[in-house]
Write a protein that binds this DNA or RNA. Structure first.
Lengths: 330, 330
DNA sequence: CTTATAAATGATAACGTTAACATTACATTT
DNA sequence: AAATGTAATGTTAACGTTATCATTTATAAG
């Protein structure tokens, strides 16, 4: 591999002149510039970004930290990564997916996601020690951290309200059986909507694994325990797909007999037929925003901490009003 | 940020001794080692991997090149990335997703995917110039390139044969309307199975966009053009989901009236009810293998080019035998 | 107590680039 | 023609590490 020095020798100029041709061409006389260009072409020069990074202290890489507990092939993370990726590459940056932090890498900043409260604090310390900025997907009480989160409480409240407004009175929620922030938030949104509507028939929440199978089983349990139920608010689209399968297998129609709503809106809701009414977390946009914020922070263009809560988007597909024919069938 | 020199000064030894404590601790006397360790802890030393990379000429990063034409949020790429990621991080490597090659990075090798014939050649030249090894997901006639591919011809042949063995005689294929290798391979597999079975009713292929909607429309067209059809071989699971939706909407049952098979086996086949019989491309495993091969090549442990074709895995869920009740319904 | 040998440590240079400052060349003004 | 200013180019050092070879110190052998 040839170096700046090789080019310099070939073009009979000094190393720094070659460097200038690359980085500040306007500072080099056109004739010299040409000569250097030809020399570069001749010996097939390719810049060594490591050497450049050593002196400039910028590597052009962002570490995206996704803890091992999160499945990378999950569309949530995927869409986030796509958003991050597109914004970064637009600004000539790349990203590295980090699953554990044992192996030190050089990067210019961190984007982190899927962390619990104290993990966030730990990550913050880690970044601080290395004097690199951090941008978080999620929320935190640490007011020094730039972060963006989806307003999931409001998202679930909204879709529940919508179902209530369609005349449903006996709702049940299918939530994920993990004690995570996002699980609690969805429960909270569900409760708020019920309270606002005067809480017609109390809260019914069934917890299950976040999978098609989990949704399927939860729906069966709900219908067995309380066949008054006419609407199911699912905490994820995947669970909604399972719930619909269960309802259909019992000979009931979705949405005529039972309404089933999802949550996430990342593509799975379209795979069910009929497509599921859901709430979309604008994860792709959040990825881009996180990347933008971080790059601004790196360049010192961002002043003051940026913490924001973005709304979830309502995606209506099919929630029928209440239908009294159901009782006959079960 | 503190450097080796800072540690050296603190511990009253030379820089190189500190370096040895990190890289070859057995070459340093225990007492000195202890002292250096304490100094490192005291001033919170963190190695600078860029400087290390400059001299060692290893950066510990693999560039995974996914051209912009491929959607990153597609589960195929995702599973591949997960496989690559897990194998690399096990060996203390990281990876960088590259979407265009304009921005030069330092890496130790390339994993490439989704390239056309001449793009592969171009990429090979690119890697060669930089003296870095390359591992390809796909196949090529260039015998210098390590590569792994799925035997999709055999995969489609296998699932088609299975459908034929279940008594179906009027098959139709729903293929992707793009002129890519993988599209041609699937067509080829379908034809082979038909030929082996004596080609009872000729080839019927409908081309459509690779989406739920595409599969839906293709299935409708097939049933309109030829209502003898009792089985649809879809080139992707997503299209199969659409096809099932179309068949169901026409009042026909899957799989009793019409069998619908998928292809890919990356999760989507489970989202339909009933789950789709499909063929699984072991993409995760391939990702790991690619990473393994590449790292061996980097370390000089691999001799001779490694080109392999791995079989696709048959995943049976529900393909009923032919059912004569269909004609009454349409 | 030398001397030979091995273990531990150190001095220097190198990796390939850029920043900061220094010099030279050339054009413009007086 | 000398003085001044600016454009173009060059010299040196620095970034933080490791490799190579040199030196010192400790250990064992005679």
């Amino acid at each position: 591999m040839s170096t700046l020095n090789d080019v310099a020798r070939e073009a009979k100029v000094s190393t720094i002149t070659v460097s200038r041709v690359i980085n500040n061409p306007e500072k080099v006389k056109p004739i010299t510039r040409e000569r250097v260009q030809r020399a570069m072409d001749k010996i097939n020069y390719v810049q060594n970004p490591v050497a450049k990074a050593l002196v400039s202290k910028r590597v052009g890489i962002i570490d995206v930290y996704v803890p091992e507990s999160i499945d990378l092939s999950n569309p949530f993370i995927m869409h986030l990564l796509v958003g991050i990726s597109e914004e970064l590459s637009k600004q000539m940056y790349s990203f590295l997916i980090i699953r554990d932090r044992k192996h030190e890498h050089r990067c210019d900043g961190y984007i982190v996601t899927g962390l619990l409260k104290d993990e966030i604090h730990e990550m913050y310390q880690y970044a601080l020690e290395r004097k690199r900025p951090i941008a978080l997907f999620g929320h935190t009480d640490n007011e020094e951290i730039d972060c963006i989160d989806v307003d999931n409480i409001e998202g679930v409240r909204m879709i529940t309200e919508y179902v209530l407004q369609n005349g449903h009175k006996n709702l049940a929620m299918i939530n994920v059986n993990e004690e995570k922030d996002y699980t609690l938030d969805r429960y909270e949104g569900y409760c708020r909507a019920l309270q606002e509507a005067g809480n017609p028939s109390g809260e019914h929440v069934m917890y299950a694994e976040n999978s098609v199978q989990g949704g399927y089983e939860a729906a069966l349990r709900i219908l067995r325990e309380n066949n008054e139920t006419t609407a199911m608010i699912c905490a994820t689209d995947i669970m909604a797909i399972g719930a619909i399968r269960a309802v259909t297998e019992l000979g009931l129609k979705v949405p005529q007999d039972i309404s089933v709503t999802g949550y996430d809106g990342l593509g799975h809701h379209l795979l069910s037929s009929p497509a599921i009414t859901t709430v979309c977390q604008p994860v792709y946009e959040i990825g881009r925003l996180l990347a933008q914020t971080l790059l601004k922070r790196i360049r010192g263009e961002e002043r003051g901490v940026k913490q924001s809560l973005v709304p979830a988007l309502f995606l209506e597909h099919s929630v029928a009003g209440i239908n009294k024919s159901k009782e006959d069938k079960i």
